[in-house]
């Protein structure tokens, strides 16, 4: 049986006037895969992600996400994915419980389902003692872990993580990656961007964008062999500097 693809992109392009921010990128992401989406600032990552999550219409090319078309089924895409970024987290002036309930409602879960998910999530994260505290009072690391769990509330097939660990302390950063592994192990596909090159090594496969194009795509091991270097940091420096 053919392995199931959660993302399929073919010559996907976004142009702003004459400038092609994303220039004919093609790739697939498999079910349960941790896919690292890397590139320098301004390489076109954010523009590409916006097309994949259904908030920006491509100029040309084809893509499906979770089985839905990025031109015609954008609302279905939004219902079937999770998304978190460093900037958009949760509501600071709602409590932990209220945030979970609120987002559960947004995702259209039933009251009973929200209650079940809320209890499960609070116990898994060990947040029992602070579940009635305002999210704004939590340390950044906790917010990011909670935000990731909330993005998984509706059991999406794929979750997009845009620099989820920026500025987070090294222990929490690693706990966060354990959560990513756990979600992937359960079959959720992870699409993640990061500027930490050690995190690129945690991915099953990594793509590197340079000036709108995907210039490299493979497992970290094979990329290191291909560029004859010891670390993903060196792969990145080699690609982006040439």
């Amino acid at each position: 049986m053919k392995e199931e693809n959660v993302i399929e992109a073919e010559e996907l392009t976004k142009a702003f006037g004459d400038f092609k921010a994303v220039n004919a990128i093609s790739f697939e992401v498999k079910k349960g895969e941790i896919f690292g989406f890397l590139g320098a600032n301004g390489a076109g990552k954010t523009t590409a992600i916006k097309m994949l999550i259904g908030i920006s219409k491509p100029s040309s090319g084809q893509a499906t996400v979770a089985g839905f078309d990025v031109y015609t089924q954008r609302e279905s895409i939004k219902k079937n994915i999770g998304y978190m970024s460093q900037k958009f987290a949760l509501y600071d002036d709602l409590t932990v419980k209220e945030n979970i309930t609120f987002f559960g409602g947004i995702y259209g879960l039933s009251r009973a389902k929200i209650k079940e998910k809320r209890e499960q999530l609070i116990s898994e994260l060990g947040l029992e003692d602070i579940s009635n505290k305002l999210v704004g009072s939590l340390p950044l690391g906790w917010k990011q872990k909670l935000s990731f769990s909330v993005s998984l509330l509706h059991d999406p097939k794929i979750v997009f993580l845009d620099e989820p660990t920026g500025g987070v302390d090294p222990i929490t950063r690693r706990q966060f990656w354990e959560m990513i592994y756990k979600a992937a192990d359960r079959g959720t596909t992870i699409f993640v961007t990061t500027h930490y090159m050690d995190e690129a090594e945690y991915c099953d496969r990594v793509s590197i964008m340079v000036e709108g194009k995907i210039e490299a795509l493979d497992t970290p091991k094979k990329l290191k062999e291909q560029f004859k270097v010891d670390s993903m940091n060196d792969v990145f420096l080699k690609l982006a500097r040439e």
């Binding site: 590139g39 320098a40 600032n41 390489a43 460093q86 620099e163 920026g166 500025g167 500027h195 090159m197 940091n233 990145f236 420096l237 982006a240 500097r241």
Partner: peptide, 10 residues
């Protein structure tokens, strides 16, 4: 260098 890619950081 927060939020800056590895090349620009270097």
């Amino acid at each position: 260098t927060s939020g800056v890619d590895p090349v620009s950081r270097k």
